[in-house]
Every structure is written in C-alpha cells, then in structure tokens.
Design a protein around this nucleic acid. Sequence first.
DNA 1: CGCATTTGACCCGCGC
DNA 2: GCGCGGGTCAAATGCG
Length: 245
Amino acid sequence: MAEKVEMLEAKVQHMKEQNRTLRMMLEIMSKKCQKLQLHVQEMNNAEGSNSGQSEFSTAQKASQIFVKIHPNDNSLMVKDGYEWKKYGHKKTTKDNPSPRAYYKCALAPTCPVKKKVQRSIQDKSVVVATYEGKHNHGFPFRDLFKPSSATPEASIMDNDLPMTNISNDINIDLCLCNRVPTDVTDKQQKDGGSNIKVLEYVNSLLKDPNFIAPLAEAVVLSINSQSEQVGLNLSLGLPQSDLSK
DNA sequence: CGCATTTGACCCGCGC
DNA sequence: GCGCGGGTCAAATGCG
C-alpha cells in the first residue's frame, strides 16, 4: 500500500515537472509571439507608407528551408511532417548539377502546395527545399512526431521564410524535435552546461509520444489563439502550414 | 496486388 | 521560328 502511494507521489511529481516545463515553454512562446506582433505592426506601418507596392502575399511567395542530411544520403527526402508525393525528377539543372526532385502535398488531393528539393551547390550535405503555395488543410501532428518521420541525420538548420527575421527562434526551438542529442549547434554549445541539462531533459520528454502530441497541440493552439488577433497563423517551424482549418 | 518511386518523354515559356 | 531549360505527366519498375 505504502509502495503504491510512493509510486503515485512519484508520478504526481513527474507530472508537476512536465507541467512546469510546459508552462515555461508556453511563457517563452508567448513572449516570442508578442515580439512577433510588434514586428508585424511595424511591417504593416512600413507597407502603409509604401503605397505603390503590390500587396505582400505569403501564399504566393516561395519559401526555402535548408536541411542538413547525411552526405551519403541520396534520397532527397526532407521530413517536415507533411506527406509528399514525388511527381518529377531532374538529373541536373542549369544552375546546379545535383539532381532535383519535385513533390506535391499528398495529405489532401486538392492541396496546391509543391516542393522542390535539391542539394545545395555550396554544401553537398545540405539540401534546399523550396515550398510553393499554401496548405489548405491542417497540420498532421501525429505524423510529425512519429519516430519514423524524424530523420536522425536531418535537422532544419535555417530558413528563408517570410517570417525568418522575426520568428527564427520559434522555428529553432520547435525543430529540436527533429534533432538527435549529438546534433548540438554552435549556439547551443555557447549556452553552457545548464542548457545542455535542460536539453537532455527535453530530449527525454520528446521521446514520449504521450507527452509530445498534446504538448505540440497545446503550444500551437495557444500561439494561434494569440496570433489570430493580428491575423497570423504560426507553424511548427514549417513553411505556411495552416493549423486553424 | 496495390502503392510509391523512378525515369524518359512531353509541354510550355522565355530568350535569341 | 528555334533551341534550351524548367516543370509535369505517365508508363515502367520496385517493394512490402
């Protein structure tokens, strides 16, 4: 009996820790969201003074992400949580001798989103994924956090999305789920030991699917509920996902 | 057998 | 008008 009570207490303690971590993350996300709102306001003001310019549309603009892969990996597959159907391939292109693959979003037959994937001409261990269009369906959370969808070697390093300057931190934080523990960036190394411990703890939590899926959903819903006030819709570090539909 | 991937052919826009 | 190159289609192929 006493053992059971101890076990339950331990569980409660564990849940409390998880809760605290979740709250911390939500707090951080809220702060970032506030920064984002400020930046959007600045952008809107700037656009207003630029009356002659055409309207900015993220749906029309192609965005790029850079994904580090294993140098021997020739698959040109970029795991970003969505399902993609390959519909074309080019052995070489004029500006880049590496093969290029063409993908369509396979999650919805009517989804217009396309993706081009090609190795970077500068760094062969990096592939450049170019996204065009906007998803007209929700984001597949389960697929994103399925172990099989997180390529060990692949980690999103940087992106050139329209929101890069203002929400890069958000992207990097949430993309940790795609990282292996050994994949420590320079930035993380500079942060010192305490951050590494936090990272280890976060990694242990990230291995628990029962924790991950509700966490991600809660975080994104929280952000989006705030973002709706300024007409924004954030993604999990991914280009132009549409979570609210 | 069904589905995903591969790959050569074809289409179309653009520059000369 | 022609050639080139990027993008797409669809038959062939491979795999579970």
